[in-house]
Amino acid sequence: MLKLVNLTVKYGNFEALHRVNLEVDHGEIVVLLGANGAGKSTTFQTISGLNKPVSGHIMLNGQSIAGKSPDKIVKMGIVQCAEDRKLFQQMTVQENLMLGGYVHRGKKSRLRATLQEVFELFPILYEKRSNPAGSLSGGQQQMLAIGRALMAKPEFMLLDEPSIGLAPLIVEQMFKSIQQINQEGTTILLAEQNANAALSIADKGYVYESGKVVVQGSAEELLANEEVRKAYVGA
């Protein structure tokens, strides 16, 4: 279980997160909703160890991980697929994927098997395996970013707005893939502005507003909530 307890994060004097509480159970898909600047990415950056919290706790299976370095957090099983993807642009698709398995670099045969699984999930990546990451389309780059995260065989995957800037058809495909990854055993924390699509695959969600969680509940509850619908579903 991944749990945030009263997590507060600042950039200089600006408080980007204020006492955020959040719980992700094994096997779930949990959605973070909120407008631009609400604090979703900051939550992810802090879980991943790229930001240090001012106060509060981040608990992974009962152990505090706040303040640990990013590479340790990946080793502990939390991998983030960042908003701007952070790919290695001049490396090939396959090189990017192999680096995704960096924490398992001692187990070559296992890495090859995981690589096959990623290629099965995203066949286009197999076709483009020798192309530089920078030459892929936006949707393909997003698949590569997710594939690279999968290579670490994470227990928890943090997906930051995977649908951003993608064509509707690709978005639909992306959400199907996310659901499939979840069914194969990875717990997913998903930040999205596309509330409808996200809630349709999620178990529960949290709604952020200027650094605070203002509404939380099951996917059904959030979809039925008038305010949430008005603000994020566009209905």
Partner: peptide
């Protein structure tokens, strides 16, 4: 590869566990 990775994207390198 981790040297090249860090040169190309430092945060990306951190996020794969380097």
């Amino acid at each position: 590869a981790s040297i090249l990775a860090m040169a190309q994207n430092r945060e990306g390198a951190s996020l794969v566990g380097i």
